[in-house]
Amino acid sequence: MSRKSEISVYKPKNSDVFHCRISIDGDRKSKSTGCANKRDAEAWAKRWKAHRLKKAEEKAENPIGHMTFLAAVNLFMEQRGEKLVNARGLETFFDWLVDEIGEETPLVEITSEVVSKLIAKRANQSRWGRPDKGLVSPLYAQRAVVDRLQSLCTWAKERWEVRLPREPKWSKHYVEIDPRTRCMSYAEEETILAVAGDLAPLLEFTLLSGVRRADALIRWSQVDWDSRVIRMRVKNKKQHEVRITQGIKEVLESVRGHHDTFVFTSTHECRERAGQRVPVCYKGYAYFFEKVCRRAGVEGLTIHDLRRTAGERMYRATGDIAAVLKFLGHASIETTRKHYVHVVLDDVEERQIAMENARNQAMAERRLRESGS
């Protein structure tokens, strides 16, 4: 498709260099050539015109891909982001990215160079905006930049059929970290449950079911007593079922009658309603878990460590990693193996002893054969 274009080179009053004005399909833009010689300025203007014509052709072939970054973010949040549990935090991350990248920057211009600069800038920021707390971690910088932009670009490609020829190679920007292995010991569990109060049933349910924090906050409508399952939609809206074992049954029966809709409630959810029994909310669970851990004198545990603990314990008891994958609702066994099943020193010692016993038995049998001959 031929495009109507016009170009003019001129020297503004009181300027030492020439400027040029280019109009493509009625879209006019002016820019300094940086050249004091008119012939050089005309050559520069022709190169700029060719660049703008190429961009215009790309936009015509891939119009959605050339939507502004702000428009892409708004559409993504409307279709996807606002439905997520961490919608508010996601919006905060994107607000910062829009300010740094620019509202009018086309989505197709998010390149590896752009991502690298954003990561470097984010990594030089203070934690919670307080210099006395040090800089944010490299992993936080990755999550604030790489994870957010990758999710946006993936959504654009899959849902809007956008072509992103210069999309960054996201894996190059990932931070290499050792997987977290912290689990709750049985001694810690006993200590925490002793001081957990009405949060104890929720903690027990999380340890027995292995579900994530958001998924643990179930309703009675999800509990199917006849089929002995709890049905839920977990991460990425996948269907997941938790079997009602004897342990989980005892937990559920201990809170029956506390609330008509929600299974797990607390009488300390907020100051305004202290003493009233109200459903435990997503943020409330985290707040009270930290409070209970401090009261119990247990350090270094997070709520997600309860899920890891459940997976680890099942693997220790059965050695069946496929069952652990199904139990935790993972799509890939690599995720289970990397983040939820770890070989610790006790495992090494157990196998080391087995190796020594096998060696001693083999040597004893050999000596027995030699003595018999």
Score class of each variant (00 low, 15 high):
358 A>I: 12
289 F>K: 12
205 F>R: 06
146 V>F: 12
319 G>S: 06
309 T>A: 05
135 L>Q: 11
6 E>A: 13
236 N>T: 09
68 T>Y: 00
22 I>W: 01
137 S>N: 14
116 S>D: 01
29 K>T: 05
356 E>I: 13
203 L>P: 04
76 F>Y: 15
251 V>C: 12
60 A>Q: 05
255 V>H: 09
162 V>H: 06
262 F>Y: 15
261 T>P: 10
226 D>K: 11
196 A>Y: 12
208 L>N: 01
333 I>Q: 14
329 G>N: 06
51 H>A: 15
207 L>P: 02
44 W>Q: 04
367 R>V: 03
272 E>W: 13
42 E>N: 13
136 V>D: 14
113 E>Q: 10
190 E>V: 05
354 A>W: 07
345 L>V: 09
14 N>H: 08
279 P>D: 07
202 L>G: 04
195 V>S: 05
11 K>F: 07
45 A>G: 08
89 G>L: 04
234 V>P: 00
216 A>F: 06
70 L>A: 06
99 D>H: 14
56 A>I: 03
113 E>S: 13
321 I>G: 03
170 W>H: 11
34 G>T: 07
160 W>S: 04
236 N>Y: 11
171 S>R: 14
276 Q>I: 06
264 F>R: 02
39 R>H: 08
256 R>M: 10
189 E>P: 09
292 V>P: 00
203 L>N: 01
207 L>G: 00
294 R>E: 09
151 S>L: 08
107 L>W: 00
209 S>I: 04
322 A>Y: 12
335 T>Y: 05
111 T>G: 03
304 H>F: 02
126 S>W: 08
342 H>A: 12
35 C>Q: 13
22 I>F: 01
229 V>F: 07
47 R>V: 07
345 L>E: 10
242 V>N: 00
131 P>M: 10
296 A>E: 04
256 R>F: 03
81 G>P: 02
247 G>M: 01
42 E>T: 10
276 Q>C: 10
343 V>K: 15
65 G>T: 03
94 F>E: 01
275 G>D: 08
4 K>H: 11
159 R>W: 03
191 T>D: 03
284 G>Q: 05
231 R>A: 05
293 C>M: 13
207 L>I: 09
155 W>P: 06
228 R>F: 00
41 A>W: 00
338 K>R: 15
313 R>L: 08
45 A>M: 04
150 Q>H: 15
99 D>F: 09
120 A>Q: 14
129 G>C: 15
182 R>C: 04
297 G>K: 14
263 V>N: 02
210 G>S: 03
123 A>R: 11
180 R>N: 11
219 R>D: 04
366 R>W: 13
363 M>W: 06
4 K>Q: 06
292 V>A: 05
319 G>W: 05
191 T>Q: 11
66 H>Y: 14
9 V>Q: 02
243 R>V: 13
362 A>M: 14
18 F>R: 11
195 V>C: 06
77 M>E: 03
318 T>P: 12
210 G>W: 08
280 V>N: 02
